[in-house]
Design a protein around this nucleic acid. Sequence first.
DNA 1: TATATTTGCATCGTGCACGATATAATTGTT
DNA 2: AACAATTATATCGTGCACGATGCAAATATA
Lengths: 154, 154
Amino acid sequence: MKEEEQLKLGNQICFPIYSVSRLITKAYKPYLEKMGLTYPQYLVLLVLWEHGKSSINQIGERLLLNTNTLSPLIKRMEKMDLLERKRSVQDERSVLIELTKKGLSYKAEAAPVPQKLLKSLLSEEVELTDVMLLKDTLDKWIAILSEKSENRSE
Amino acid sequence: MKEEEQLKLGNQICFPIYSVSRLITKAYKPYLEKMGLTYPQYLVLLVLWEHGKSSINQIGERLLLNTNTLSPLIKRMEKMDLLERKRSVQDERSVLIELTKKGLSYKAEAAPVPQKLLKSLLSEEVELTDVMLLKDTLDKWIAILSEKSENRSE
DNA sequence: TATATTTGCATCGTGCACGATATAATTGTT
DNA sequence: AACAATTATATCGTGCACGATGCAAATATA
């Protein structure tokens, strides 16, 4: 492909990823706003539902987010009475995050959401096998790219 | 799949899209910061390089962004002397955006960037055919999802 | 031709993202 | 033990995203 052609929006590979990411966040909105959650806040809950009490660092590793994003986000969630922040006794630097009853209780309400969303993304044109292939490629890219962005300093 | 299982991060389909989107924006950074550009600013340039003078509305349609995002972004780009804003004579509501010489000249520098980035995303594990399949699925989703988010009010 | 509706853009407020920097606790080294 | 390096978190500044709202120009309707 000529360079000229590559600069056209329709031939870009990153633009559709960027757009779909935003559009999916929007698609999540009607489901999440019933609970007063944003999508990143929902992601934090996913981690805590799956792994229980975790440090900010551990949450960040799983979501590929740094503390400069997570710290304020988690403080907002604390204000919403979804979780509690406690300094670790073993290591006074760590802040351990634990769900409140309210945070735990949202799990039941959130459970059917991914299924509903996936369903809305499936059609005659896009079948489940396509989605699995897509996820496969993306997961491989995450492995490559997250490696790279960590080692920026080396 | 049980609902319990679906709530695990590793089984989510939207999370990898969200993560890869952010990681790719980061991957673009070293290439774009030479020109002092952010990724969304680069997208605006792509539109203007391809289509020439355009209204904010037209740019928004192509990038799937509204004016509340584009207006400030384009004003920043005007300050950087990349483009000029002019009210349309035919329709005083429209603001027409036209590239300056500087904005035009960046095209040559930006031309090889998508190729380089794509290359860094290809490996033994992820081949070009996988990327084409991925883009195909994403483009179909954009068609579905952008339709939906427009018709929210109906 | 008045008036209602729509359209294009801008502004405001809130919440991410993220680079840069700061700080205190911990660990490593001499 | 004293000091250097690392680690975990927090804060700051900037730039998106986006819902809500406002406003003026254009268009549609009565």
